[in-house]
């Protein structure tokens, strides 16, 4: 079976099997299976530090897993050559958790960057495309500012414009709602929905905000303790049949998801139990 042959159209866009990842001796994923269908909005939720960003880095081939199979649009990401990976990434828009704008360039040049590097487009066309995308995120007026002159939320929106500038087949949003005011948040939600529904762009949405996610996601996967703890449509999950979902959506500290990073016994560390055994 050739890893790069064209996939059957009904196959999932992303197929993950038996994913295992260990970083710095800490097991991040331990046997994750995940399918992401074409054309939908799939949300990945989970407590911070469970490896949502790491999962996205696996999908885009930035970080090879220790074991498992990852196929994105028919490309075996784990074994793909650099050229294959780059060809795939040209079809993926990625919104970084911390924006990752190029600090040397203006807002305009940041958004134009993917266009300029890959295609030789006439300057007039580049300008039109970039201004359209900036208009969509409400920052057309900020085109000539430098990233250092923007607030965190504005940077996030510029990064979003950059992620969608090539009209990709897949957009990955890593925590797009952090630092947005309610108005901007609503606009971004609307944008995500529009991109998905009118252009049919598959979207992966990594987020904590259940209220926001519920408005756009077709399906939610809850990542916890190295596994997919629960999966289903938003209503299904918030009905809360499993202890994982009940705890996560109710925000309780006690339950299967530990709030505390693994640590020795609290009392022992404070020296209250009269020294260790």
């Amino acid at each position: 079976m050739n890893a790069t042959s064209a996939p059957p159209p009904n196959e999932a866009l992303i197929r993950i099997r038996g994913l295992r990842t260990v970083l710095n001796g800490k097991t991040i994923f331990d046997g994750v299976d995940l399918d992401i269908p074409r054309g939908g909005v799939t949300a990945i939720m989970g407590p911070s530090g469970t490896g949502k960003t790491t999962l996205m880095r696996h999908i885009t081939g930035q970080l090879p897993p220790d074991a498992g199979e990852i196929v994105v649009d028919g490309v075996d990401v784990v074994r793909a050559s650099r050229e294959q990976l780059f060809a795939l990434r040209e079809k993926i828009g990625y919104l970084f958790q911390n924006s990752a704008l190029l600090t040397d360039f203006t807002v305009f040049e940041n958004v134009a960057f993917p266009l300029r590097q890959q295609l030789r487009l006439p300057e007039e066309l580049v300008r039109n495309i970039v201004l359209t995308k900036l208009q969509a995120v409400g920052l057309r007026g900020a085109a000539e500012l430098m990233p250092s002159e923007l607030s965190g939320g504005m940077m996030r929106r510029v990064a979003l414009a950059r992620a969608i500038v090539r009209d990709p087949m897949l957009i990955i949003y890593d925590e797009p709602f952090v630092g947005l005011d309610p108005i901007a948040l609503n606009q971004i939600l609307k944008l995500i929905r529009t991109l998905n529904q009118t252009l049919g762009i598959t979207s992966i949405l990594v987020a904590h905000e259940l209220a926001a996610v519920r408005q756009v996601a077709d399906r939610i996967h809850l990542v916890a303790a190295g596994k997919i703890a629960a999966a289903g449509a938003p209503e299904e999950l918030s009905r809360g049949d499993s202890p994982w979902t009940r705890q996560f959506f109710a925000g309780e500290a006690d339950g299967p998801v530990p709030f505390h990073y693994p640590a020795p016994d609290y009392a022992a560390e404070l020296g209250l139990s009269g020294g260790g055994a």
Binding site: T60, A87, R89, I92, Y94, F96, A100, L102, R162
Partner: peptide, 12 residues
């Protein structure tokens, strides 16, 4: 600031 990773993701 992840700019190098961002370039990788933009196929640069």
């Amino acid at each position: 600031t992840d700019q190098l990773d961002a370039m990788e993701m933009m196929a640069v």
